[in-house]
């Protein structure tokens, strides 16, 4: 038979559900017969509940202030292992998600169209240009599409700079492979500058634009 004294030592095992069935039965049998131990158990439960209702200690105003101050001063630089790189990415992302680059991008595009128009149908700029440009854009679009697909499937987040970066890399890869084999105008500087370098730039901008697709916005 369990004594009252023993019960007061087993009470936490009981409340924590850390008893064998036999121990539990003995414990409850004692409780059923002993009003004093029932009072003890009730007091213990009350103690625990009361501890749970203790009001939170307020944060002292000066501590709070200092913490906020230090938090503000550290946040941009310390979000990753490479602070400088991170802040560059943050700046680029800020820029790409704003509207600042649309005007320079538009000017570039207009200049390219103007050059094509001035060059005429038979100019060195235009020969083979459509194929080359499409290949550049396609090479840039493929990794962007892959990244977007991955982000959608895994519910990850993509940033404008990451999309722009993969687009640029894809287009660059397209250019490097094109230059050696397919493109017959790789020695024509205006063609290379306009179609290939311009194509890489255009792919980069389109990659950045892709970050604005509605289902890629952070929820």
């Amino acid at each position: 038979m369990l004594t009252c004294k023993e019960l007061t030592e087993l009470i936490t095992d009981y409340l924590e559900g850390r008893m064998s069935l036999g121990q539990r039965l003995r414990f409850q049998l004692h409780l059923g017969m002993c009003r004093r131990c029932r009072i003890y158990l009730r007091q213990m439960k009350m103690t625990i509940q009361t501890l749970g209702k203790l009001p939170d200690e307020p944060i002292p105003a000066d501590v709070r202030e200092e913490l906020l101050m230090r938090f503000r001063s550290m946040r941009p630089a310390s979000t990753a292992a490479f602070p400088a790189w991170q802040s560059i990415v943050a700046v680029v992302d800020g820029w790409l998600s704003g509207r600042g680059w649309i005007i320079p991008g538009g000017v570039l595009l207009a200049a390219a169209l103007l050059a094509v128009a001035l060059g005429g149908e038979s100019g060195p700029l235009v020969q083979g240009s459509a194929t080359c440009l499409l290949t550049e854009l396609g090479a840039g679009a493929a990794p962007v599409a892959a990244l977007i697909l991955a982000a959608t499937v895994f519910r990850g987040q993509v940033t404008a700079s990451s999309l722009a970066a993969v687009a640029a890399l894809g287009a660059l890869a397209g250019y490097l492979s094109l230059l050696g084999s397919v493109c017959p105008y790789s020695r024509v500087t205006p063609h290379v500058l306009l179609v290939h370098v311009g194509g890489i730039l255009a792919a980069t901008l389109l990659g950045a634009l892709a970050a604005r697709l509605p289902w890629l916005r952070p929820r």
Binding site: C4, E6, I39, Y40, R42, M46, G52, K53
Partner: peptide, 22 residues
């Protein structure tokens, strides 16, 4: 406790019967 492990000076019910009242 008594030598046999029974309460000699048992706990008495608390007047305040909820944490809020306490």
């Amino acid at each position: 406790f008594l030598p046999n492990g029974m309460w000699a000076d048992p706990p008495r019910p608390w007047h305040e019967d909820s944490p809020d009242k306490l």
